[in-house]
């Protein structure tokens, strides 16, 4: 697995038995820690475990990525958010980019089990960023890989691949697209699917605190209306989302995040180098 991405298997029987595709948990890594949302990538009700796949970005994600087998996480709350809409739509195209690949896994599974023809398009910077390949392949009728550097599959972004695919297969317009990944990627996918009127669902990642609708930190604008990402989402109709606002709000704490991260790195430098 990619060095910057770590999967944690957490024992939480209640959440494991409840989790549905598209839902997330809020995690606190230490007593002084932030509350951060993480998607439930896989859940195993029988074993009582959930899988959280985390991209190392700032302090909290780094701290989580540095955990060892047997360690505890201070708090895990969930499952939160409205589950993905799963139905037999016909042909469903599911697109995951970067760490956004992880949350597509339960959706791909559920869409396949609901009887859809599933086209998975997975994108990463390079081949080492491709995660959950086996599971995705198993539940997909078509599996396409895109890498930024062309080290595997299509060279370029998932949106570029999608555009090409739609042109080459004019008769096989998907009935629905689900896109999860960086904001720019989701926006690019929506730009591709917009003209053809293909319904496109995106999973938004606004900054959250409680994850239960209490604070409004996670405000997003959809169809000109303010919605709370944590309780009204995280999935929304991508053609109605104000991605500019989402991007802007994701940068609110840039300066503070830098301070936190530098402080963390100082303390953990030796550990990080190993």
């Amino acid at each position: 697995m990619c060095a910057d991405t770590v999967s944690l298997i957490i024992f939480s029987p209640v959440i494991a038995s409840k989790a549905k595709a598209g839902q997330f948990v809020v995690v606190r890594a230490s007593e002084e820690g932030e509350r951060i949302p993480l998607t439930i990538a896989e859940s195993d009700a029988a074993a009582g475990t959930i899988n959280l796949t985390i991209l190392k970005r700032g302090k909290t994600s780094s701290l989580l990525c540095s955990l060892n087998k047997g360690d505890y996480i201070t708090d895990v709350a969930g499952p939160l958010g409205i589950p993905s809409e799963i139905e037999k739509f016909g042909t469903v195209c599911i697109i995951g980019g970067g760490v956004g690949i992880a949350p597509t896994v339960p959706i791909i599974k559920a869409m396949k089990e609901a009887g859809n023809y599933v086209i998975s398009i997975i994108g990463a910077r390079n081949c080492s960023g491709l995660i959950f390949e086996d599971t995705i392949k198993k539940y997909s009728d078509q599996y396409h890989v895109c890498t930024d550097d062309g080290s595997m599959g299509y060279k370029g972004f998932v949106s570029g691949f999608l555009s090409q695919y739609l042109k080459e297969n004019p008769g096989k317009k998907p009935d629905r697209v689900v896109a999860i990944g960086p904001v720019l990627m989701m926006k690019a996918v929506c730009d591709v699917t917009g003209p053809g009127g293909i319904k496109t669902i995106v999973s938004l990642n606004p900054i959250m605190v409680d994850g239960t609708g209490m604070c409004g930190s996670c405000r997003v604008e959809v169809d000109g209306k303010t919605r709370f990402g944590c309780v009204d989402g995280p999935e929304f109709d991508g053609h109605l989302v104000d991605f500019g606002l989402l991007n802007s709000r994701l940068n609110i704490y840039c300066d503070e995040e830098k301070v936190s991260n530098e402080k963390y790195m100082e303390k953990h430098e030796c550990k990080m180098k190993i």
């Binding site: 230490s30 002084e32 820690g33 932030e34 509350r35 302090k59 909290t60 605190v209 609110i252 704490y253 503070e256 995040e257 301070v259 936190s260 402080k263």
Partner: peptide, 11 residues
């Protein structure tokens, strides 16, 4: 109010 000793920032 104890940031950065505690992780959660406030503007």
């Amino acid at each position: 109010y104890l940031f950065p000793a505690w992780d959660t920032p406030v503007k």
